[in-house]
Design a protein around this nucleic acid. Structure first.
Lengths: 355, 355
DNA sequence: AAAAAAACGGGTAACGTTACCCATGCGATC
DNA sequence: GATCGCATGGGTAACGTTACCCGTTTTTTT
């Protein structure tokens, strides 16, 4: 059917023929297996180099290892994931493992399931799932057949590792910062996920829950306002529009992710409001864009590179045979910038603002 | 060695047993092959559903198709690639093809080669390579064994398809816009790639070459100033620092990519200069960040989603058997925003500015 | 009514690799 | 000097799927 020439590939048999040895011997050399003399190793290696042989990953998958780790990403647009991936790649460099990435379709659990299946079907040796929406039971099912590390969830599982930042602390830092600036009407932009099961370990759930708790602890239960859209630019834009249209307009917005904060920025600007004069804005992830002087967005840093690197290390350990479960948590820090400032309400409590 | 249970997988033989037919029959149903009755199809499909069978991609790879397309991305950080990928995913949805992404290590051709090999080793049915650095000969070698579409290069090859925007027009639009605003000392930030061969079809080469040409056409050969760093935030920052430090400071900066423009923005701010008062800044790609009110970066839109979608369509066609080569080009448009304004030099020609 | 053609179902040999075995030869041990 | 053990190399059966056959039945054509 295809016009492509798949036969040209050099196989282990070609190498064996060229080196005048058995295919078994070549396989042993490739795997550093026991029972090959230095002379044999050298001879085979020479043939491999000469013929430019590369192992056929699919054929390997039929028997043993693929030397591949799969990464599930909700969407590549979020730059925080780029930090994570940088950390992972660094960790994988020189190990012989290759990372392949699949995109899980944002907030759609069905698309995510398909993406995970694709990874399973390709027999990856291990998986790193970033902020997955699947239920814990689903994850454990996956972990039964594949080494699994989950990043961005606080799960406590016996069969897979978790890497996350302390989202509770992160959210406390933001809300506390805004409260200290005199804000009372603080609103939050969160993410809606299509999962029917709503795992309390999802990071956006924790950020929203913590926001609510801190507000209540400060007697501001009545001021709680959450727009549940998504951690994207569009989501932030829509969420901010919704919140700004409220009769009692918030003086501060805590977006659960920088990306959403950027969208909110557009909505705020469109409404003719000034940041932080009329409204303070804070995000989460401390992306590079947040650091730009013209944006100068207050955010929470969670060191994605370290998280990604750790996840990679844990994954390799797990592929190597570790069966005990590890939970690794990083403590986030607040990075205050110019997008947050004193509340325009000053000490004045309550009072409805313009619509 | 591994503690993971790979045997649990449902195979075609299980389905055949359950449906009381041969494995051949099941395979035929799966492939929609000729010679299966409606009754047979129904019976087999029922068994497939009941057992939750999924084809084993690696086993398929040994014989025929993997229903996988590989995407080579220089780096996932660049949001323009997210647009491209969105277009590709839309095109692939419902076709049964899965996209797997590998990251090619930015400007390092060696890392890129490894990433492409990883895709080849995994027997993808087709590849989309985004802005690859490899030589045309290398690409054609790859195209010999795999359906190939290259995005972001102007290559004229007989064995693979090219999708690109007219970078010459794009660069002309930017430089023309800046010239019309009275700028004379216009500098450019380009990308250095590690390739020894320097294919004239690389997009950053074209943008830089066109910048130079237009400058010369306007008698500004002496004002040509190019910093060759990279299309990243760091690259833009370093490039802008270098250019701003010149004895005759430019009044306008044309960054070859938005990402680099953001870095340049930081450098400009650090130097205590105002945009566009002291210096105008333009990018390329029209990313969402560029559209943010606080950034408002003049840029060039090249509709990444359309490019990605087209690339996907061409790839599917090619996998389907097309052997003729297609070149698809989109015409970019200028999106003027507030980051560009009249030259502070006014009509005054020449004259060195402060250091 | 006979012959030809089409439709349908199944057997089987690959695809490239690895893991388990076994065979050989050699030095060390008693 | 016979036996043992170990180092070394190779034979071979999978792994799950598909493509090429071939045999049988059913339909169409003459």
């Amino acid at each position: 059917m295809t016009a492509y020439d798949r036969r040209r590939r050099v196989t282990i048999a070609d190498v064996a023929g060229h080196a005048q040895v058995s295919t078994t011997a070549v396989s042993k050399v490739l795997r550093n297996a026991y029972g090959v003399s230095p002379a044999m190793r050298e001879k085979v290696q020479a043939a491999i180099d000469e013929l430019g042989y590369r192992p056929h990953a699919a054929a390997r998958a039929m028997r043993g290892r693929t030397f591949t780790v799969g990464v599930l990403l909700p969407h590549i647009r979020n730059p925080f994931f780029a930090d994570v991936l940088d950390g992972l790649m660094d960790q994988l460099a020189g190990t012989g493992y290759q990372a392949i990435i699949v995109q899980g379709g944002g907030a759609d659990p069905e698309a995510e399931r398909r993406a995970v299946e694709a990874l399973t079907d390709r027999q990856v040796d291990g998986m790193l799932m970033i902020a997955p929406l699947a239920s814990k039971a689903d994850l454990e099912e996956t972990a039964r057949t594949t080494a699994l590390v989950v990043l961005g969830r606080h799960d406590r599982s016996a069969v897979y590792d978790s890497v996350f930042d302390d989202d509770e602390t992160g959210a406390e830092l933001v809300v506390g910062h805004l409260l200290a600036l005199g804000h009372r009407r603080i609103a939050h932009i969160s993410q809606k996920d299509g999962s029917r099961v709503r795992p309390a370990e999802l990071l956006h759930t924790i950020r929203a829950r913590t926001y609510r708790r801190v507000m209540e602890e400060h007697g501001l239960a009545d001021e709680v306002a959450v727009a549940t859209t998504s951690y994207t630019e569009e989501g932030g834009y829509l969420g901010a529009r919704e919140l700004l249209a409220r009769p009692s307009r918030p003086t501060a917005l805590f977006a659960g992710a920088d990306l959403a904060a950027f969208g909110a920025l557009a909505a705020i600007h469109e409404a003719g409001l000034a940041v932080p004069g009329d409204i303070s804005l804070a995000g989460y992830d401390n992306t590079r864009t947040a650091a730009l002087a013209h944006i100068s967005l207050t955010s929470v840093d969670q060191d994605g590179a370290t998280m990604g690197g750790t996840a990679g290390r844990l994954l390799l350990e797990r592929i190597g045979g570790r069966t005990s479960a590890v939970r690794f948590s990083v403590t986030p820090t607040l990075v205050p910038r110019r997008s947050t400032g004193p509340s325009p309400d000053g000490e004045t409590r309550g009072g409805a603002a313009a619509g």
